[in-house]
Each structure stands twice: as structure tokens, then as C-alpha cells.
Nucleic acid binder design. Structure first.
Lengths: 192, 192
DNA sequence: TCTTTTTTGAAACAAATGTTTCAGAATTAA
DNA sequence: TTAATTCTGAAACATTTGTTTCAAAAAAGA
């Protein structure tokens, strides 16, 4: 047998993710990445691959983190409508406190169609959020807390769209109250 | 006096805008731009300036187009709530029929803070849309068509956020019905 | 120990990047 | 027509880009 890989791949991906997350795909150079990862480019190409493959690994890492955070935070579901409210409030909170916006949204608008394997990762994440919301909405509808005539799929899409827009708003205005007010409005108008 | 500028600056900006709109700022090269504009880079630097200044001109051109389109389409306002409905439907229509998403949204997430003069253009456009929506909402509230207890500012932000999210959704799913369903839901829940 | 295999570091690669240079063409006013 | 001025085209600029090369170092099994 022979020499083993010296660097911690998990840690390197994390570092690379942070750079991509902040600067986007095109604006990030391989030097930026190898500096942050603290590895030589030959090691990078040997183990992970080229810039594109590294980005895929990074955004996959990002979505995995996000999904785990949700699954952890909402492990024991209470009343559906209450969980939904908490989810909306948490979204508002995350959006207004994290230093960068969402890596997936940034990538979506940067790639826009022409990059199937990156989009696949983003779509999988989007599906997860959609299912999570849809389940809550359906439960709430069954208990008469949300209008049962509306499609749970549509309401889930609708809420998710709102969150995306909040990211945009916060980048432009950096106004936490704007987001909190919208969150309040959304919550009030769900019960109806 | 001396020789005059030979190329049509308006037309050149339009062409450059189309490239930036599609590919984003960082992923667009000066060669891409001069090819599309059909001018030499020396002419570009002589008249408009560097890449950054060109982008500012382009996104200013984009927002001007957008604002003019709105002012034209809604020149004679009918019933406020009806105009609002039409606006929402038009948004859904534009989002699901244009080849690229919104240049401002793309730029917002690509630049994200560190580019004040680009952001200023985007903010001005955002303010315009906000005011336009807010006026309609206030009128509708005065006539009891929309809940008067809610802040018109918040509802305007809220609707605008929705539209942003629709762009994102359409990039990911290319599903027109998703957007139309959300538009229907939004319209139904405004009157309340 | 030695051999085998693989990783690493530094340097190099060609191509692409944003930008500048400058001679010559073009245009207007005198 | 001439003089003055400015634009244009092609080439060149120095950096930066993503990626590769390869000798030397490292590690595990024989």
C-alpha cells in the first residue's frame, strides 16, 4: 500500500463551500479555493476533481447541512399550524441574521438552466422543503386550521417563494423589520 | 471639430444588456460584449468605460425598460383591486414566458452588497415597484377591498417578494402551472 | 529493511482575462 | 484643401485563469 491522503476532505469541502457561498461560482478562482482549503491544486485535482466537481460537492454539502438542521429542529412535531408558524419565524430569523444569502438561490440564478447536475442538487433540496411544508399544511387542513379548499402543493410553493423573496429583500434593504412584518402577515393570512 | 462616434450607443447598450442578462456579470467576458455590440474594445473604453461602467449602463437600461413597460401598461388605472389582480397575472405571465429570469434579481444575488452603484440602480427599481403596489393597495384598502388593518407597505413588500420567488421557482421547475396556481392563491387571499 | 504505490509541493502550462496602445482612417471647421 | 481633432481596428499588454506536470516525500506491506 501507499501514502494516504493527508488533508481532511470534509474540512476542505467546508472551507471551499464558504468561499463559493460568499462569492458565487464564476467569481471564485481556483487560487481562492486552494488558499481557503489549504491544499495544493494537485491534491485537489487528485481527490475531488475540477472546479465544477468541487462546486457540486460544496452545494451538496450545503443542502445536507440545511436539511439536517431542519430535521433536527423539527424532530418532535407539535400542532401542525404551530410548527408552520415556527418555521416561518425561523426562516425570517435565518434570513436576517446570516452573513450571506442562500447558496442555492445564488447558484440557481447564476447557473439558470445550463448545468444539470448542479440543478439536480438544488431541486432535491427544493423538493425536501416542499414536502416538509406540504405535510404540515395537509395536517393543518385536516384539522381545519388552514382552508382545505386550497391545494397544499400550491400553498407550499407559495410559502417557499415568499422565503426566496425575503432573501432578495434583505440583500437590498438589510431591514430586519421588513422581513418580520412580512412573516407576521403570512402567518395571519394562513389561518383563514 | 473632429470625427463623430460611428456606432449607435443605444443599440450597443441594448446588445450588451442582453449578454449580461443571460450570463451574469462575472461569467461575461469583454470579448463576449464587444462581439455582441459589434464594436472594438478601444471604442468601448473611449465612450462608455470599463466593464463595470458598462454593466451599470446596462442594468440602468434594463430597469428603465421595465418601468416604462409598467407605466405604459397601467396608464389608465381602473378599480385598484382589479389593477392589482392584473398586475399579479401579468407578473406570472412575464415570468413564465421570458427566456431569462430578471436581470436585477440575478445581479442582486451575484453582487450581494459589495457594489454600491449597481445596487443603487436595483434599489431605485425596487422602490418604483414598491410605490406602485403600495398606491394600489392603499386605494383598495380605502374602498374596503383589502384588509385595512394591514400595512400597505408590508403587503407591497410581500407581493414583491412573491414575484421574486416565482422567478426562482420557474428557473428550477419550468412549470407554468405552478406559477399560475400561486398567482390564483395570492389573488384570492388579498380580498379578505 | 526495501519495494511499491500514492500524495504532495512548486513550478509550469496554454488559454483567457480586462485593458491599453498607437498608427491610420475619418470627419468637421477654417 | 488643409489643419485639427477624434474615432477605429488590430495588435499587444500584463495578469489571471483552470489545469497539468513531475520529481521528491511519505507511508504501508513484504
Amino acid at each position: 500500500m501507499a501514502r494516504l491522503v493527508a488533508f481532511d476532505e470534509e474540512r476542505a469541502i467546508q472551507k471551499a463551500m464558504e468561499v463559493f457561498w460568499k462569492k458565487g461560482y464564476a467569481a471564485t478562482s481556483m487560487r481562492d479555493l486552494t488558499d481557503a482549503m489549504q491544499i495544493n491544486s494537485s491534491s485537489l485535482y487528485n481527490t475531488i476533481g475540477d472546479k465544477h466537481q468541487l462546486f457540486v460537492r460544496c452545494i451538496r454539502h450545503y443542502t445536507k447541512m440545511r436539511i439536517q438542521a431542519i430535521e433536527q429542529r423539527y424532530a418532535d412535531l407539535g400542532s401542525s399550524i404551530q410548527v408552520l408558524e415556527n418555521f416561518i419565524k425561523d426562516a425570517a430569523d435565518i434570513i436576517t441574521t446570516e452573513p450571506n444569502s442562500c447558496m442555492c438561490i445564488k447558484a440557481t440564478f447564476e447557473i439558470e438552466g445550463d448545468n444539470p447536475d448542479i440543478q439536480a442538487v438544488i431541486n432535491a433540496y427544493d423538493d425536501f422543503t416542499h414536502q416538509f411544508l406540504k405535510n404540515l399544511i395537509e395536517h393543518a387542513q385536516n384539522q381545519g386550521e388552514i382552508d382545505g379548499n386550497e391545494s397544499a402543493d400550491t400553498i407550499a410553493d407559495y410559502l417557499n417563494s415568499l422565503f426566496i423573496g425575503w432573501y432578495n429583500s434583505f440583500v437590498l434593504h438589510k431591514n430586519r423589520n421588513k422581513i418580520l412584518n412580512m412573516a407576521g402577515f403570512a402567518i395571519r393570512h394562513l389561518r383563514c
